[in-house]
Write a protein that binds this DNA or RNA. Structure first.
Lengths: 365, 365
DNA sequence: ACCCGTTTCGAGAAGCTTCCCGATAGTTTT
DNA sequence: AAAACTATCGGGAAGCTTCTCGAAACGGGT
């Protein structure tokens, strides 16, 4: 191989540097085999090994082969930590969701993960658990972990967005999905909530329901507001009166959904149909109605939103608005990847589609 | 490829070297504020800053305060990459599950994550998607990411365990849960599948069912084998004949569950009850039975396993064996944490409990 | 022989921390 | 007043990689 000692010349006169034996007697028990192990064992420098492994030019074919062979034999695995430290990128994407009990978020994650892992990214998942404080803490933790990008669906309680402004200020690519943040100008992937809600309520009207209630979500969430607006506009379009008492807001917990349902059903003039902001709470409505012996869809029509798998299974089957969850995941991931290439604020909206099932089909009446 | 311009110095007089202005004038725009920024700004050494931040002794109170104040003001966040590189620990735990579509694994993850994040660990989640190759690739990726520990539930197809042997050889703490690996002597958290199955089938017998089938899982999984054994022993205990035709094995997909169900129901002498290896496939059975107009529980008793939330909602409600999923997550995480303290092989088993519901309650007959 | 260009490789820094060890001060003890 | 401590702090290495700069060897041309 090439010599190892070299002279130095700052402003002349070369003082050579005698690299004495650095006691490479035994292999120095490593936890993991490093590039230096290969270099030492082959009597060459780590630079050369790195170059060979990186597939650089400027290296003799024989040397390259030797290095590659030994690397394989030792099962050398490059250390991503060292790499991340140097390159300032971890190849990790953070995903922050409010929960993962129901169908939506796990499915979203599967879709996103498929795209991301194909692009060479690992994923770090956090749940805010619908707590604003946890959300802030999670964002901080993900930032501290130096994630290369962030996929976020906010909490129903999030009203202050400074933690996301901090993300943007650090220029960490950020994509919101589903529960987005209207006052921040960031890329996002949403579905057409308004039109979905409009379809849902028009469907109820077509089926002859006239006193239609809406079990809404928290007003803090844009999704809730849009679905509410769809509800309102559908009534207006068909010249039905808008009764504020028929709109109840709940905090997306099952418990509160039950309370609100009872409130609606206990009215002096109870509604003859309920449009629920999502399927889990539509199902709570259905359970209570069944428990009370209310006939669905004859006495009460029910429509949900999101098409959770359980909606097709429950009896009567639940009419709902389909949203392409898996695709939302894929799209969000793709948008994030594009974002990491070159920043540009882009908002994508996916279509929704009504799936009419038994819970609202009573024919014309 | 080669560098651009360099000086020449054979025996002095340096031919020019055009190292262009590296502009270290202002603070050298950092992506993140480091310990060195604090040190420079305060005119002290990074060692001192580190000590102050680490809360070491050996530091003047005034200095410490000065450092802490500036750190707060600059919003200094220690770089975990550098730390991990130095300490050889990332504070990340890997979780590897076969899927995330159903109730079990997401809930498990929530339980585990609660314990782990309280202990200061982040979590990296991978899905093998029931593919052996993906599982191997995921284990490798997690190992490469230098996770400090691993929580694993294997694929139904995993029959070669070399990738886990590699984990053990590298002395990375490893805890299996639910779908464990019998031929490896590792810590694990399981539930009492055998006794759960025994209870389930005895319950069917008590309800007067006599020709009880078992829709089993893949024999490769210990869970399946134990539940099968519980089924067999329950029959034996009550002197019922064991008919091999009444045992069908499926691969845990919904599609295959339907095929196997039809096979059972199409028999010349169909069963009067089916014990399913888990709830998702029990529900497939129920759907087909309902579709065919078979009365549940009169003509066909059904019992599942795992108590997914949907089991209480479907009609008729599904009798099932409850397993404390959340607790399995917590226990597994705790066991892993203990493992990281000091290795010892410990196996924990959590109790199961039968929940009798409508799908099997027809009274004595 | 000498010079030059080409090919192949080595040294070293950077990226950010922590920790060991040694070095200054300042303070107390004989 | 000299010696011995103590309280604080700084230097530098290590952890692993990549990349830049420049050096060594070799071949060919004159």
């Amino acid at each position: 191989m090439r010599g190892k000692q070299r002279y130095y010349c700052k402003s002349c006169d070369f003082h050579f540097t005698i690299t004495e034996a650095s006691t490479p007697t035994e292999t120095r028990r490593h936890h993991e085999v490093t590039i230096m192990d290969i270099a030492n064992q082959l009597g060459i420098s780590k630079s050369t090994v790195s170059r060979a492994l990186r597939g650089h030019a400027d290296i003799h074919e024989a040397t390259r082969k030797m290095i590659l062979d030994l690397a394989q034999q030792l099962d050398y695995q490059p250390n991503p930590l060292a790499n991340a430290l140097l390159k300032r990128r971890t190849n990790i994407v953070g995903i922050l969701v409010p929960e993962f009990r129901h169908y939506f978020f796990p499915t979203f994650i599967m879709g996103a993960q498929e795209v991301l892992s194909k692009a060479g990214y690992n994923v770090m998942i956090c749940q805010s658990d619908e707590s604003y404080e946890t959300e802030v803490a999670n964002v901080k933790a993900l930032l501290r972990s130096r994630v290369d990008g962030l996929l976020v669906s906010i909490t129903a309680k999030t009203e202050n967005f400074d933690h996301f402004r901090a993300v943007m200020q650090k220029e960490v690519p950020l994509v919101f999905f589903n529960r987005v943040c209207p006052e921040l100008d960031t890329p996002q992937v949403i579905i057409d909530d308004y039109s979905g809600a409009l379809q849902a309520v028009e469907h109820l009207i077509e089926q002859g329901y006239r006193r239609i209630a809406h079990l809404a979500g928290p007003v803090t969430l844009q999704v809730s507001r849009l679905r509410l607006q769809g509800y309102i506009d559908a009534l207006q379009k068909h010249q039905l009166p808008l009764d504020q008492d028929l709109i109840v807001y709940h905090d997306l917990t099952e418990e509160h959904a039950r309370i609100c349902t009872r409130q609606l059903l206990d009215m002096p003039q109870p509604p003859d149909a309920i449009f629920a902001v999502n399927d889990p709470c539509a199902i709570e409505i259905m359970l209570i109605a069944k428990q009370r012996g209310i006939k669905i869809p004859q006495d009460l029509g029910i429509v949900g939103f999101s098409n959770d798998p359980i909606s097709a299974i429950i009896e009567p089957s639940l009419t709902t608005v389909e949203q392409p969850v898996w695709k939302i995941g894929e799209e969000s991931a793709r948008l994030l990847l594009e974002q990491m290439e070159r920043p540009k604020v882009e908002k994508r909206m996916l279509a929704t589609r009504l799936i009419a099932r038994d819970s609202s089909l009573r024919g014309k009446s």
